[in-house]
Amino acid sequence: MTRTLNPAADLATDTEDVARLLTPDGERVADPALDPFVADVTADELRGLYRDMVLVRRIDTEGVALQRQGQLGLWAPCQGQEATQVATARAMRADDFAFPSYREIGVGYVRGVTPADFVLSWRGEEHSTLSPYEINSAVPQIIIGAQTLHAVGYAMGVQRDGTDQVAVTYFGDGATSQGDVNEAMVFASSFGAPVVFVCTNNQYAISEPVSLQAKFPIAGRAPGFGIPSLRVDGNDALACLAAMRWALAHARTGGGPAFIEAVTYRMGPHTTSDDPTRYRDREEVERWRRRDPIARVEAHLRARGEFDDTLAAQVQRDADELGAAVRAACLGAVTRDPITVFDHVYAEPHRGIDEQRTAFAAYLEGFADAEEVAR
């Protein structure tokens, strides 16, 4: 599936020389390589992708609002990247295992993350709120690129177990400059591990444009490791679904790792502590807004007579209900006693942790004595 890259045209920021099935206006276009992988996709499944993306955007909107209101310490927005996240996650089997970064809200939603799971860690109530083995998804990784190593390790374990599961790891364009990502691809290629690398090229690594760290498309790096790759329109949900089906089939049938570069855009800040107006202009943002992934699927379905205002209203009601659940989970959170920070550090009793717990308990007791004196 690796395509020949034209060094004269394929700059890292190019958005035209990508695999695409839906234009920004929702027109269906042919792609001989991708078409077979979505030949069975029905209008109902497309409506499902639309609904998922709308709901994911609502979770994201609620998260930003909660942080601005002081209810969350931080939030990493994903607006504009819903197609990449939702469509690739929908292509996965239930027993495949995802290794996401901190921005993959859509992947988490598809895999079964609950409203509380989305907010309690960002609120500082829990180190982790989800059980990876209940939803086959690792805890979102904050360390840039580290999850790629975890995914390859899991995939190598799958090989030894003799099953046909696939590990999927998500990371941004900035992470490709990290040693971890490159080392993960070395191991994946060397051992033929069943892992899919999904690089979400959202144009910026915090404030650094992708053109600063990559003079040519990121997808062109993977073949250097012996990994086939595909550069796809990350705002085209149908193309993302097809690309992921190709990559999963390749990995699942013994072909080894595969790499997808999804070219998209981060409409909001890197996190809520960032001010993107300092490093990008309004015209650029508006240009990408016209490529909105949700509007694209809606336009396509309306042109086919498979979408109406009744459906749009129902999806909006579902989004409102989910947004309310996220907000309630955040505002209803009960902060645990500080001493519980030592809970679940080790699976078995540990003398060092017991000693630290005792010392910390004495420290906390000192505050209680001070409060008593003050009264």
Rank of each mutant, 00 (worst) to 15 (best):
T4M: 04
T4I: 15
P7Y: 11
A8R: 06
A12F: 01
D14V: 09
L22A: 12
P24E: 10
P24L: 13
V29N: 03
V29M: 07
A33Y: 01
L34A: 13
D35G: 07
P36S: 10
A39I: 01
L46G: 05
R51M: 02
V56T: 02
R58Y: 00
L66M: 08
Q69T: 11
G70A: 05
L74H: 03
W75E: 11
Q81Y: 12
A83M: 04
A87H: 10
T88N: 06
A94Y: 01
F99I: 06
R103Q: 09
E104S: 03
I105C: 00
G106C: 07
G106R: 03
G112Y: 07
G112C: 02
F118S: 00
L120Q: 13
R123S: 05
E125C: 08
E134F: 09
Q147F: 08
Q147H: 15
L149K: 05
L149A: 09
A151C: 05
A155Y: 00
M156C: 12
G157K: 07
Q165W: 07
G174Y: 11
G174F: 06
G174P: 06
A175G: 05
S177Y: 04
Q178E: 15
M185T: 10
V186M: 15
V195E: 02
N202C: 04
S207H: 05
P209Y: 12
V210Q: 04
F216C: 01
I218V: 08
G226Q: 14
A237T: 09
L238P: 09
L238N: 06
L238Q: 08
A239C: 02
R245Y: 03
R245H: 10
A247M: 13
L248N: 06
R252G: 02
R252Q: 11
T253Y: 03
A258K: 06
R266T: 07
G268E: 13
H270M: 13
H270I: 09
S273W: 04
R282F: 06
R291S: 04
P293K: 01
E298N: 03
A299G: 01
L301E: 11
A303N: 05
A312E: 11
Q314M: 10
A319E: 01
A325E: 07
C330K: 00
C330S: 14
G332Q: 00
P349A: 12
I353W: 11
L364Q: 08
G366P: 00
A370V: 13
A370M: 15
